[in-house]
Computed example of a mutant assay.
Amino acid sequence: MAIPVIDFSRLDGDERAAALAEIAAGFEEWGFFQLVNTGIPDELLERVKKVCTDCYKLREEGFNRSNPAVKALAALVEQEGEGLAPRKVEGMDWEDVFTLHDDLPWPSIPPTFKETMMEYRTELKKLAEKMLGVMEELLGLEEGQITKVFSKDGDFEPFYGTKVSHYPPCPRPEMVDGLRAHTDAGGLILLFQDDRVGGLQVLGRDGRWADVQPVENAIVINTGDQIEVMSNGRYKSAWHRVLATRDGNRRSIASFYNPARAATIAPAIPAAADSGDYPSFSFGDYMEVYIKQKFQDKEPRFAAAAATKNMVD
Rank of each mutant, 00 (worst) to 15 (best):
T223I: 15
W209I: 02
M230L: 04
D12I: 01
V197Q: 10
D7G: 06
G140I: 11
A74F: 06
Y257R: 06
R47E: 14
R196A: 09
F27Q: 04
K148G: 06
T147V: 13
G178Q: 12
A254S: 12
F113A: 09
A268D: 02
L139C: 08
P4K: 07
F156Y: 15
A19Q: 09
Q34C: 02
D211G: 02
E299S: 10
V212Q: 07
E142A: 14
W30R: 07
Y278K: 15
E143C: 08
H101K: 13
M175Q: 15
Q293W: 11
A74Y: 07
T162K: 02
A305I: 01
E15M: 05
Q226C: 12
R261V: 11
V220H: 03
V242G: 00
D277C: 05
Q213N: 09
E142C: 04
L200V: 00
E143D: 13
G154V: 01
D313T: 14
P300R: 12
P214T: 11
V242D: 00
D195E: 08
V212N: 07
D42R: 10
L11T: 10
K148W: 06
D103S: 11
T122K: 14
F192G: 03
A254L: 11
I23G: 10
K309S: 01
T264K: 15
V70A: 05
T112M: 05
L76S: 00
P107I: 14
M287A: 01
I6R: 05
S108Y: 01
L35F: 06
Q145R: 15
L188Q: 01
V70M: 06
H101T: 12
K88L: 00
F32V: 05
Y257P: 02
V242N: 00
D247Y: 11
R234I: 11
I269G: 06
V77G: 01
R172H: 15
V5E: 02
W94E: 07
A2P: 09
E137G: 03
M135H: 03
F192M: 09
V97C: 13
P41T: 09
F156D: 10
P267C: 10
V176I: 15
A266W: 03
W94A: 00
A306K: 00
V89C: 12
F33L: 03
K49H: 12
P41F: 06
T122H: 11
D153Q: 15
F159R: 08
D277T: 04
W30H: 12
P168M: 05
I40F: 10
L203D: 08
K130E: 09
P107M: 11
R180A: 05
I3G: 05
A19S: 13
G224H: 02
V134E: 07
T147L: 13
V312E: 15
N249Y: 02
L45T: 03
L243S: 04
D313G: 12
V176W: 01
L141H: 10
T116M: 04
Y167A: 00
V48A: 13
C170Q: 03
R196M: 09
S252R: 06
G276I: 04
Y278A: 03
R121N: 14
P107K: 10
G39A: 08
T308P: 01
G81A: 12
E115R: 12
L73E: 11
L200E: 00
L11I: 11
E288W: 05
